[in-house]
Simulated assay, not measured.
Amino acid sequence: MRGATALRGCRGPHPTPYQVFGFAFFLVMLLAYWAVPLCCDAGQHAAVVERLKADLLHPRHPMADLPGAGSPYYSPYALAQGVFARLTGLGGWEVVRLAGVLNLVVLLTGIGRFVRVLTPRPWAPVLALGTMTLLWGTERAWSSGYLSLMSMTGNLGYPSAFAIGLTFWAWAWTGARARGQGPVRYVGPSGLPAVAGYAGLGALYGLVLLIHPITAAAAVSGAVAFVAGWQR
């Protein structure tokens, strides 16, 4: 019995429910995403990648033979895709397709981190993921910002999916600081907080704004709600 107890004590940590269900969701969603042909707005995003692949500094407009200056499609996210396309030689459609893998990772990890700030209950992130993907219904809408179970089979490669994933991370970071959790250090004789963490948080919200302004509006609203609710 002592030997069995010792062996049990040497076992590593068990995966959390969200790690198990999140990984299963990741695999199933990627298979579905890979099986469904890209269409609709994906063509615009693929054109953006092609324009940046041709000229990173002075890309043409993605939907017309016009100068591309001022186009909202040219964000840091699109620039990274353009650099990736130039380095690998892949076309715009292939880059948009592969972006869905990264976007799904950022989204799933962001949801898990965000929910853990709200509650330590291990099943809460699983319920949050199910709620987020199922309450939209069964209609398939492949426009930006829709993250229903059916819609994600076509729009995971969109910049909005990446921006929403970053928003969950930003909310988690904001919530941790609003509740006094996390590595927030107070320095100096006046007790002022260090600015590095808050500067990074501001940069994260700024990145969301540059990638997808509509998502940024929701991100800022959520941040204000956290601060107002936990700093009373």
Rank of each mutant, 00 (worst) to 15 (best):
G82E: 01
A216G: 10
G89E: 05
V106Y: 02
L57K: 07
P189C: 10
A54E: 14
V101H: 05
P76Q: 01
Y33Q: 06
Q181S: 08
N155Y: 01
G165N: 07
M150I: 03
T138L: 11
P76V: 02
P62K: 12
A4M: 09
P15A: 01
G229P: 00
G197Q: 08
P67Q: 06
A24S: 10
P59W: 04
I211G: 05
H212F: 10
L147I: 14
S221A: 15
A78C: 05
G100F: 04
R232E: 02
G175T: 05
S148T: 15
G188R: 03
L30V: 06
F84G: 04
G91S: 03
E50A: 12
H58I: 08
R2H: 00
T131S: 13
S151E: 11
A223H: 05
L149Y: 15
S190E: 14
T119L: 01
V195M: 15
A124Q: 05
D55E: 06
S221Y: 08
S151W: 12
A85Q: 08
D65C: 00
W123A: 15
V28M: 12
E139A: 13
A85S: 08
Y205D: 03
A32K: 10
P76C: 09
G145I: 03
V220K: 07
G145Q: 11
I164L: 14
